[in-house]
Design a protein around this nucleic acid. Structure first.
Length: 309
RNA sequence: GGGUAGGUAGCAGAGCGGUCAAAUGCAUCAGACUGUAAAUCUGACGCCCUACGGGCUACGGGGGUUCGAAUCCCUCCCUACCCA
């Protein structure tokens, strides 16, 4: 299939919608490579719980991540004890896109971290203020009200639009204020490597189908040793707090392993949490679309056969 | 057959004469999102309406007391446990 060399293909959608398989299929069709846009698959050792695609056996020793005969990028690139955030992603993803194109291949972005994907495509640039762990530690002892009062005094403009009850947002805003004196407004420049004329495919199975897929996938993950995986990560020096901060399977299994919840509760609450996560992802996508971006919604991967890419 | 504790919104579970369409949690639905984004946060949630207000139906069924009941009394049905 012939396609413009600049075009970017994105495969988005809620968790368990079948993005990974579709991405590999399309990569074969388009002679492409996959860039994972997943905030948890970047971490090495977090495999079952994040649903990483299985590495082809012949590539295990390689430093390239090959799955289904397709090269994947931005998987296993960070240590779980090190923070990897959107800023790292934007830098790395742009680099990788350039690199893939230089080799004459088609880049495909695939992942569920839509915040990252949207920022990449729109060339959003965030204030260049790196996280300040000491300040964050200090501020995290305060209530949202207290944080808001501080922000109001230091940067009323940002305070006017921020979510007043969201400690994480408030702390980040105060962090930026501490470094720059004020929170600059978001700037979006013309995307350099990522193009505006991307095709964004959103995999969106019917609700009941998605729910069932989530349920089955979770059972499979347990059967595949997911609990042991989390146990192993903790054994390698990743503390419970950090594991819980990853959310979903890592959070609930960490709680189980600390005996703060029983197995039955864990399974039920985890399944609910995954469903809530999928809903949030969908909510983000609808908003993105409402903002004027064209998304191609597909309820069944087979439909992609008839979509011109 | 006797006794005791109960029957409250989709579920769990408070309330025990008025301020109760009924706390809280869960589920469900919708939303937010300026370097933690699988995180974090918000709202709706009996029904109807010209919805910051109003109407209707509700706390197992029926009846009663009272100005007024989910809350008190009678009765019936059901559930759990205990004694036979």
């Amino acid at each position: 299939m012939e396609l413009p060399p600049h075009k970017l293909i994105v495969i988005a959608g809620p968790t368990a919608s079948g993005k990974s398989d579709l991405a590999i299929e399309l990569a074969h069709r388009l002679d492409g490579e996959i860039i994972s846009a997943d905030s948890r698959q970047v971490y090495s050792g977090m495999d079952i719980g994040t649903g990483k695609v299985l590495r082809d056996s012949e590539s295990v020793a390689d430093d390239e991540y090959i799955s289904g005969g397709i090269r994947h990028h931005l998987i296993d690139i960070a240590d779980p004890n090190e923070a990897y955030n959107i800023s790292d992603f934007l830098r790395d993803a742009n680099r990788v896109i350039t690199d893939i194109r230089a080799r004459g291949k088609q880049p495909l972005i695939c992942g569920g971290t839509h915040f990252w994907i949207q920022a990449l495509l729109e060339g959003t640039s965030f204030p260049a203020v790196p996280p300040d762990p000491v300040l964050r530690d200090h501020l995290s002892t305060k209530t949202a009200d207290e944080l808001y009062t501080l922000l109001e005094a230091q940067d009323p403009t940002r305070a006017a639009t921020i979510d007043q009850k969201n400690p994480i947002r408030l702390i980040r805003a105060l962090e930026i204020v501490a470094a720059l004196g004020t929170v600059p407004s978001v700037t979006q420049h013309e995307p350099s490597t990522a193009e505006n004329h991307s095709t964004i495919l959103v995999l969106n199975p019917p609700k009941d189908v998605l729910r069932e897929r989530i349920r089955i996938r979770l059972l499979n993950r347990f059967a595949s040793g997911m609990i042991e995986e989390v146990e192993g990560l903790h054994g390698q020096g990743i503390d419970w707090e950090r594991l819980e901060s990853f959310g979903l399977e890592y959070r609930f299994i960490a709680q189980l392993l600390q005996s703060s919840i029983d197995q039955e509760t864990m399974r039920i609450e985890l399944e609910h949490a995954i469903w809530h996560y999928a809903r949030r992802q969908l909510s983000w996508l609808r908003r993105w679309e409402r903002q004027g971006t064209t998304l191609t919604w597909i309820s069944d991967p087979k439909e992609t056969m008839s979509i011109p890419l």
